[in-house]
Design a protein around this nucleic acid. Structure first.
Lengths: 338, 338
DNA sequence: CCGCGAGAATGAATCGATTCATTCCGCCGC
DNA sequence: GCGGCGGAATGAATCGATTCATTCTCGCGG
């Protein structure tokens, strides 16, 4: 009952194990007659290669690891899809781990991937994972940072210019006549969040008229957004912002829900709201949500591409820092009366 | 440079490989002194177990596979989270594959999992995967069907009573005074879809006044929903349904977008709309979406639980068919003028 | 008829962790 | 002082696919 091994197949077909392996990996080196007999035996015995043995001998696995901040965020689902596509082209598969913005979980996945000797790791890092990644590198496992620029040119990275994105977002709000801007997002240790904020500051500074206040959140979820929205709604009009830049669409949708719950404060009449990522649901929101669009699938695709280059490229390889430009997608949530 | 192996660690610590293995797996059988020395060597050499070798010898891997219909659907993200949670409790990890409602991809993932000799497979099957799953079973890889009931008691399954859910949905529409109901969903080979429709039929039949028309779609996505919405909006009022039951929330959100785009037809005034799954975005939709709620994370958690029972349970194991009950979550999209 | 070379097939060695039958060691009781 | 006992440590064997140096087989030219 135990699964058949190459040895069993060899016996059944009356050839040696070496030949079976050739049939599997270099069929052109095998005589048609022999090839047929072996294939028939494989079929008959229901033989399926054991990946563990393969990898043990070969030294490298056939999968790459991907660690995302939040699997529930469609942005990452799209990114994963792109990564998977490029990996499939190379005959590899992608293992997705969800760190849930939790350093412990992130470390656990890195450990897991290290044990599995994955071909490489794509990671949307939480905090400072440098040391861990260096360590993987030492073991021959390259990594690519996704959705995160890095000053550190010892790693490849694929990201979107978050500072530019933040700038776009706040500029758009200000251009619409909003001047008391609030940035909602966090934790600020997330580089993406910090950069978006940075861009926002620049835009606000440029137009002297606008102020930018920061409301830091514990995570980037709908629930968190809703909580902040409740608080804002309860503020007296004078202290209330008239423009909100949310660090991602999940937060923005939560904010929207809470703000428009009662009629006293509404988006976009009293508050202009813009999110980030332009997830598919953004346009279907209570009030269609303005957002900053990122080429999510392309990021994943490109990241795997870089990874493969590094993995195969040998010494000649140069780490690449790829930066895409974000794009403003204005919708009703930032519409002005005019 | 090459990674250190147990052999290296053994040499460094002046013990045998067997002892190193004991330190790793049964530390209590090792003298404190020896244990310390070995651990120090492990630390110093940066030794990390090679999972492939472990699995090759042990025969079974430390991960379980999960195949979902659509990774972009938050319902599956939640389900995966639940699965992951239970797996982690057992020291296992979950590999997520996205079939994207595509039989070829589904088969490819099953092959991959078979090669990896995963501990078991959780699958939200597309069509008839019975034979493939039987085959895995023959190799000692049990599977559990998720989000899908099965008449076939040779497999365990965890699902929600979709017929009941469909019944709830259509009853709710009819109770709100809607009588020309359209069911939007597909492909109908998806059991979940067929069952929801079946439930809808029952509800319609029960209230003789209502008619139920089926608009079959190619997939369960926002885009597809939008397309159908456009078509419905273009219909003359007399042919237009006054209630729509969408097979999932993604479709529903797409429909909503398209329908409410211009002011002539609106939800819920002209058409009552209800979705399925109650994803987090449903309540943040243009018009908060009524839906049928499923305990998504619990489904995943329970499925892994069943899987582990089957995997460890030996002969005494009985396949369980667990069915949860869905719940109606009425929101504004089905509100009636009254 | 013999020798040679190209191509096909062989099978022992290998990867690294785990297992388990065996050996080793120290100590207690008689 | 010695037999015996139990706990600790040992290391050869094992899992299954792959590799590669070696052997085998033919066909053809001389």
């Amino acid at each position: 009952m135990a699964s058949a091994s190459v040895r069993d197949v060899a016996a059944a077909a009356g050839v040696s194990v070496g030949t079976v392996s050739n049939v599997l990996n270099r069929p052109e080196k095998v005589t048609p007659g022999t090839l047929g007999r072996v294939q028939e035996a494989i079929e008959r015995l229901g033989f399926v290669r054991n990946d563990a043995a393969r990898q043990l001998r070969g030294g490298r696995s056939r999968s790459i690891g991907l660690i995302v901040l939040n699997a529930g965020n469609p942005f990452f689902a799209d990114l994963a899809r792109g990564a998977e596509e490029r990996a499939a082209e190379a005959g590899l598969s992608v293992l997705v781990g969800n760190s849930d913005e939790n350093a412990t979980r992130e470390a656990a996945y890195l450990d897991l991937f290290e044990q599995q000797r994955v071909r490489g790791v794509l990671i949307s890092p939480l905090g400072d994972t440098g040391p861990q990644l260096q360590r993987l590198r030492g073991r021959g496992i390259p990594s690519v940072l996704v959705d995160r620029q890095t000053e550190n040119s010892t790693f490849s990275s694929v990201a979107v210019d978050d500072v530019a994105g933040g700038y776009l977002a706040v500029s758009h709000l200000v251009a619409g006549g909003r001047s008391r801007i609030a940035f909602v997002g966090g934790p600020l240790v997330l580089r993406q969040v910090a950069d978006r904020l940075e861009g926002g500051y620049r835009a606000a500074a440029e137009r002297g008229s606008a102020t930018l206040e920061v409301i830091e959140t514990g995570s980037l979820t709908v629930t968190e957004g809703r909580a902040v929205g409740e608080r804002i709604r309860a503020l007296p009009p004078s202290e209330r912002p008239d423009g909100i830049f949310a660090a991602n669409d999940l937060l923005a949708m939560g904010l929207l829900q809470a703000l428009n719950m009662s009629g006293d404060v509404t988006v976009p009449r009293d508050i202009g709201l813009i999110g980030y990522d332009d997830i598919a649901f953004a346009s279907a929101a209570v009030v269609p949500l303005s957002s900053i669009k990122q080429p999510s699938a392309l990021i994943g695709y490109t990241a795997v591409d870089l990874l493969l280059q590094e993995s195969d490229g040998g010494d000649a390889f140069e780490h690449g820092q790829i930066v895409f430009q974000p794009e403003l997608v204005p919708r009703e949530s930032t519409a002005t009366g005019a």
